[in-house]
Nucleic acid binder design. Structure first.
Lengths: 255, 255
DNA sequence: CGGGGGCTTGAAACTGATCAAAACGCGTGG
DNA sequence: CCACGCGTTTTGATCAGTTTCAAGCCCCCG
């Protein structure tokens, strides 16, 4: 059911009318599961469908100067190649980290739908704008912060984004990444990432064992990271499968 | 006339029908000129109109860790706050560098227009996607390249973007930035930017005197910069005032 | 002609990279 | 169940790129 995940996600940002939601529920789709490090799309591909991350995690990456650079993480509810509706050629590779499940919706279905439902157009457009804001934040992170706050910032971002889709439990979340992935996202060497993580552990700000990360003392971590969640433009919701269809004022506290 | 600049820009990417173009020409607007370092919008502002850069240059910036970080440049034809249609609060500051002229179009005019003209929605949405692609490229630039190729890459990007709007003359363009601006965009210190520029001069790849930059041996510069213009998703046109309105198959090559 | 912002230069300090190797953990096959 | 093997994490030592601080210079604008 990509519908529930997507509806929850879009509701967390823009408003959707009942008609919009009903229209989303009628979307045809196919699902596919990817294993760790499976390539979902390659640079140069021109897909004819858009993916919705149902579970798991994707990274957007490209080799720059013999070094792999990760430029985005995509978590459940994200649409990693939504832009192919307007920019047909992929200029990066999309890769599954850990097992992930994607739902695919054909462009040929999306295009007429978006013409008939401007509310959905706005909601999806907004999604791409939020991702642009995340990219800008990464620019700031890479350009202005040194290793420790930089890594801390990325952890805060991941925690917050997972929280929005209900995948943060008591400050802990499952993270399929290796330290090398983190290095490639942060523009640091693997060795230095390792030392930075150890430093964060020593400061009692995080635990990271295996594929589980816990944020201890989240406020302090956010201070160290110089993190403010505003740029994510997201509202916390109860969980990915709980829309707000019955409540009348769920998000009023966030207005 | 924001219409011509905007139409030229949008034509350079997506296709626009005659009706779309006519509709753009009927947009009401106000113009305003800003002096060097004038603040156009502040963090926290919730503008009710969108700007189109008519001439000059804006930067998007924010203070991170007592350091000013620039996360975007906006050149003629760009719409630096288009995203406020969907994300009302500015999370950065927009600042004019050198004298620049902006045209403003009210949200209240844009919104109904976009509902009635899906082609215009797509064209503007596409613009935001191109800027997202530029942000990703900056992430790669900051994360993977060291000073010399990093600065060279930014110069190549600026040249290419200016070329698209006809502001590149024989490899030369007017650049209102100081070296400090470049430092703040590249995540480097002013001192090191200076040394890097000198190195580029010594390699006979650029000239940079006052506010004029010339790219000598552009191919070599692009090689050093590891630059490929694909991510800009732009087509070179004769100039900003020359649309392709008479052709019958302007975009057929892109279908 | 004066002032000031921007550019340039030098030396020292530091952050993070690189190289190399060892320890660890975990899934697989014997 | 144990041994193997490989990918990941950890550690140490050395090195390089970049920052920082401080001062001088140039040039343009007023």
């Amino acid at each position: 059911m990509p519908h529930q995940v997507l509806i929850a996600r879009l509701l967390a940002g823009a408003g959707l009318t009942e008609q919009d939601q009903a229209r989303l529920r009628s979307m045809p789709h196919t699902s596919r599961t990817f294993k760790n490090r499976d390539i979902v799309l390659r640079q140069g591909d021109t897909p004819v469908q858009c993916a919705v991350v149902m579970s798991g995690c994707l990274i957007r990456q490209r080799v720059v100067r013999e070094r792999n650079q990760i430029s985005s993480f995509y978590l459940p509810g994200d649409m990693p190649d939504l832009h192919t509706l307007h920019l047909p050629v992929m200029d990066h590779e999309l890769c599954s980290v850990g097992t992930s499940t994607l739902a695919f919706i054909p462009h040929s279905h999306l295009r007429p739908m978006l013409i008939d439902f401007p509310g959905l157009t706005n909601a999806l457009w907004r999604e791409t704008l939020v991702h642009a804001a995340i990219h800008r934040e990464w620019v700031e992170n890479l350009g202005s912060r040194r290793a420790l706050p930089r890594v801390a910032h990325l952890l805060c971002e991941l925690a917050t984004r997972l929280e929005v889709v209900g995948l943060l439990e008591d400050g802990s979340f499952r993270l399929p990444f290796t330290q090398q992935d983190f290095a490639e996202a942060c523009g640091l060497s693997t060795v230095h990432i390792n030392r930075t993580i150890q430093e964060l552990r020593r400061m009692n700000l995080i635990e990271w064992r295996g594929h589980t990360v816990s944020l201890l003392r989240r406020k302090e971590l956010e201070t160290v990271a110089d993190f403010s969640p505003d740029y994510l433009h997201a509202f916390k919701v109860a969980g990915p499968l709980h829309g707000r269809s019955k409540g009348i004022s769920d998000q009023s506290a966030m207005a």
